[in-house]
Simulated scan of single mutants.
Amino acid sequence: MSPLITSSYFSDFMSPVSPSNHNVHDKTSPFYQISTWDSLRNNITTIINKINSNSNAKIKDIILDLLELNLIRGRGIFCRSVLTSQMSRPEFTHVFAALVALVNSIFFEVGQLFIRRIVWQFKSAYKRNDNPQLLNTVRFIAHLVNQKVVHGIIAIEILTVLLEKPSEFRVTTAVRFLVECGSMLQDVLPNKLYGVFDLFCGILYEGRFGKNAEFMIKKLLAIRKRDFQVYPANRQPELDFVEDEDKLTHEVSLDEDIDPEFSLDVFKLDPYFAMNEKFYEGMKKDLIFDDEESDEDQESGSDIESDEESEGDQASSGKVSNSDTRSSHSSDSANSDENGRKRKRN
């Protein structure tokens, strides 16, 4: 593995010689690589910060902007930017989850890193009793379960952890979490979900917590009785950008020793930088070409349909004219037969 390039190393390296004396086009030089890294970090952060309540219809545009950047190299920056932005703007969690789902369908390794990061974040917040981060993290995980980015087993594990050693905050957090993704869990893991509701009923029976927790549990039981119809997994179809056959689901457990790979968030000198950049450029062209082809297929499909409709109209009009021709021929032959009979009688 290449050594970590710190700021002190870089300043020491550059101090004897002015940067202007370096060949900025030399892709093996630290000066070139660190400048492209800074640009990559700034661009990814700027694009993620554009996400807001009006981003539902613009997620694909945001993806196209991200594809212009090397997301493989910047996957650590991407994950950190999304998690940081979601913490500061939790009301847009569903939009962030849709973005992660779309990126995951294109770059499996980016989605895999993101899942490891968010599970690590949950475990960290739980140990530190960081309630705001804990609430926002489980909310994000719930939407990722609904988007099928992560398997529902992690949701069952989170609910079990929250309810095994409950506090009023943990109980209400578990209720909010289950309201978000309960419909999906009921479809994929009904037996395990039944055990979670046993824990809720036990807490309700013991009555150890305040009226707020009791009220929320009763409301959750009422929602479950109606099969989560009020809170379906796919509440916003316009954010379901990935076809079912293209969805990639990660399986992870709280019991795993998770490495969040924070080293990917900082600059490292890459001896194969030029080759890796060229590889990503080829991948990017293929992705954009495939997207353009699908758009062209849709357009050609609509053109074919319109052509078929016009041909159908022409065919129907042709049938009418042929029938008219046949009727005119039959009337002409009838008139000629009548005239022949008159001549014979005369």
Score class of each variant (00 low, 15 high):
residue 31 F to E: 13
residue 251 E to T: 13
residue 311 E to W: 07
residue 187 D to N: 03
residue 197 F to P: 05
residue 288 I to P: 14
residue 75 R to V: 04
residue 111 G to S: 03
residue 70 N to P: 03
residue 179 V to S: 00
residue 213 A to V: 00
residue 321 S to D: 14
residue 315 A to Y: 15
residue 102 L to S: 14
residue 302 S to V: 05
residue 265 D to M: 10
residue 237 P to D: 10
residue 3 P to Q: 06
residue 232 P to G: 04
residue 329 H to K: 07
residue 235 R to Y: 13
residue 209 F to R: 01
residue 71 L to D: 06
residue 96 F to W: 14
residue 340 G to F: 03
residue 102 L to K: 06
residue 169 F to E: 06
residue 227 D to P: 11
residue 335 N to S: 15
residue 57 A to K: 05
residue 170 R to M: 09
residue 321 S to H: 12
residue 303 D to E: 07
residue 150 V to I: 05
residue 42 N to A: 11
residue 298 Q to F: 12
residue 127 K to I: 15
residue 226 R to Q: 06
residue 55 S to I: 12
residue 215 F to E: 05
residue 40 L to K: 04
residue 271 P to Q: 08
residue 140 F to E: 00
residue 127 K to P: 05
residue 80 R to T: 12
residue 258 I to S: 01
residue 183 S to L: 04
residue 116 R to C: 00
residue 56 N to R: 10
residue 166 P to V: 04
residue 87 M to D: 06
residue 237 P to W: 02
residue 93 T to W: 00
residue 57 A to W: 06
residue 49 N to M: 08
residue 201 C to R: 11
residue 204 L to P: 01
residue 248 L to A: 09
residue 24 V to W: 06
residue 83 L to H: 10
residue 243 E to F: 02
residue 185 L to K: 01
residue 270 D to V: 04
residue 216 M to P: 03
residue 136 N to G: 00
